[in-house]
Every structure is written in C-alpha cells, then in structure tokens.
C-alpha cells in the first residue's frame, strides 16, 4: 500500500526559506526502512533530494534525521513503525543543527566539541618506539565497551534539550567520549580532561534521559554522571554544578530530606550577593504566592540510619 514522504527541502545557496515536498512511494513495502524509501525516492522520483548515507546498517552514523518529530537513524527505522494515521512520514533534518541542504546539516559544532577533548590516548610514559604493548585488564576495559559503540551519528546531540537552548553545552556524545578517556587506565590526563569538560558545561546536563534513545545503546547518561563524579574526585568543585550536588548530599545527610532553601543558598553561595539577587525574583514570586519553602527542616525519624549510610559509603558532601 502506498505511503507519502513529507520531506523538508532547503538549499542554503538559493533558498530564503525552506519548503516541503510530498513524495508518493508505491513500490516499496512498509517493511523497508526510511532510508530505503528515501533512496528509492531519489533514484526514481526526484534526484535532487539530498541526504547523507553510507553503510545502511547503523555502523557509519551518517543518516540520523528527524522522523515524525523524533530523531534517529533512517537506516534503522522501518517505515511501518513510524507511519502516521494518514500514511505519511514527516522527514526533517536533525534539530539543534543549521540545515545545509534538505536533510544534510552543518555538523561543525558537533565535531568542534569532540576535537576540543583531545580524543586520543595520552599515556604517562612516552614510548616513542612503540616497543611494548599497553595492556589493559578485561575488567578495566569492560566499562569502556558501551561507549566504544558510539558511531557519532549525533542523534543524542540533536535530541538534547539543553543544546537546543544553549549551544555552548558540550552535549551527550562529547561527554561520553570524555568518559572514555577519563576512565581509561592508560591515560594520564584525567584531571586536565575533567577540567576541560567542566569548562564545556558538563554540569548543564539536565538528567532528562533524552539521550537514552541512542540507536547504538551507548546511553550517554550514565557516562555523564560518571564524569561528574570524576570531576569531584579530582577536586574541581568550585562551580554551581558540583556545589549543587554536594549541598544536596549534605542536606540529605543532615535531615533525610533535600532541603530546598539550603540547597539554593549552598549552590549559589551564601555570600555571592550578585548570584543571590539573580535567583531572588523566583523567591519573591514564591513568597507572594505563600509557598516559600521552610528555612529550617526537622530531621526525619531515625535520621541516624541515613547518616550511617553516608558514612559507611564515604559519600562526599559539601
């Protein structure tokens, strides 16, 4: 049965604004992938439709695009799983990127964030002759296996809501690559790497798990929180992000609860007048609505048990 591709069309060289073309697909079954359908459209109907693709098997990472409002690899998305009730599929370039032509986008910001990481091993001893192997135990290698599956398709970057409002944020893939070197026992630049990724707004990750839609199941989120822990271990704590995490831990250890008032003061800094003035408008709005959080909290019953948990695990706090 026929279906329609509703395709975003734009050429940065000639077009002021994008338009859309509807292409009827009558000869390909619904079991075909979205990439199959696009290639069919390009070969048989309109040769000017432009998109990146190479391997057709989710290894090269070229064909990430927005399919019915959500981003993924076209080669890994069967048509039948995304057909809308009117038997159409909306195909757009990845969000969070500037379109170049049709479904092809400018990837430069994504690559820039990656190259800033110095994404290569920087071992302790300079073995100029490459005479000996740098051996790693299977146990040490195990935690790097998932991130090694990243094909840099930028799906996570396109889905990231923080990138969408602040392009300075490194984005999930770059932080996952930072993890890949920070946790590599052969590397010698753990602290420098942690400092670099902190400067690239590591702590802006909003914990939203949009990157859990990774088509290669890298799931950068766990790597991101591991990098955050590494920065705290390396003593890079003089910023709102690490202060926030550590003051939350402090208030839970003290009262059992996340004490909102103290967390705000502790994150901004009790003596950071400029910072406190910036958060004041929300505080005033809350106060006017009669819902300012309590200044003091009574600890929950048996709070000693909670302190025992923190102390046994040697969990850091502010």
């Amino acid at each position: 049965m026929a279906y329609t591709l509703d395709i975003f069309r734009f050429d940065q060289g000639t077009d002021e604004v994008p338009h859309r073309d509807r292409v009827e697909i009558t000869e390909l079954p619904e079991t075909a992938t979205v990439l199959d359908a696009l290639e069919h459209a390009k070969a048989e109907i309109d040769g000017s439709i432009t998109f990146r693709r190479s391997c057709r098997s989710a290894i090269c990472g070229s064909c990430s695009m927005n399919i019915n409002g959500t981003t993924g690899l076209a080669c890994k998305t069967p048509v039948r799983t995304v057909l809308r009730s009117d038997r159409s599929i909306a195909i757009d370039p990845m969000p969070n990127f500037q379109p170049m032509r049709d479904l092809v986008v400018h990837m430069d910001p994504f690559w820039d964030k990656y190259t800033r990481l110095k994404p290569y091993l920087q071992p302790k001893d300079k073995d100029e002759d490459h005479a000996t192997e740098r051996r790693v135990s299977p146990e040490d290698m195990k935690k790097l296996v998932a991130v090694a599956n990243c094909v840099m398709c930028a799906t996570c970057y396109a889905l990231c809501p923080v990138v969408s409002v602040d392009p300075a944020f490194a984005g999930p893939a770059a932080i996952a690559y930072a993890f890949r070197f920070i946790e590599d026992v052969r590397d010698s630049k753990r602290k420098e790497r942690a400092a670099q990724i902190s400067d690239d707004y590591l702590w802006l990750c909003a914990h939203c798990y949009a990157c859990s839609y990774c088509p290669k199941h890298v799931d950068p989120h766990d790597d991101i929180i591991a990098v955050k822990r590494a920065t705290i271990e390396e003593g890079i704590t003089d910023a709102a992000g690490p202060r926030h995490a550590l003051v939350v831990a402090k208030t839970i250890k003290a009262t059992g609860m996340l004490h909102e008032t103290e967390v705000i003061q502790g994150t901004v800094g009790r003596f950071n007048i400029k910072g406190l003035i910036k958060v004041a408008p929300l505080g005033i709005r809350l106060a006017l609505a009669g819902k300012l959080p309590p200044m003091f909290l009574k600890p929950v019953p048996k709070v000693d048990e909670i302190r025992t948990i923190f102390e046994t695990l040697e969990a850091p706090t502010l």
């Binding site: 822990r229 995490a245 939350v248 831990a249 996340l258 850091p316």
Partner: peptide, 11 residues
C-alpha cells in the same frame, strides 16, 4: 533526586 548519583554511585 537524580543529583546524589553525581556524588556517589551507591548512596
């Protein structure tokens, strides 16, 4: 609250 994992993976 998603934040404690940033300081310690077990607590």
């Amino acid at each position: 609250a998603s934040v404690l994992n940033d300081t310690n993976r077990d607590v």
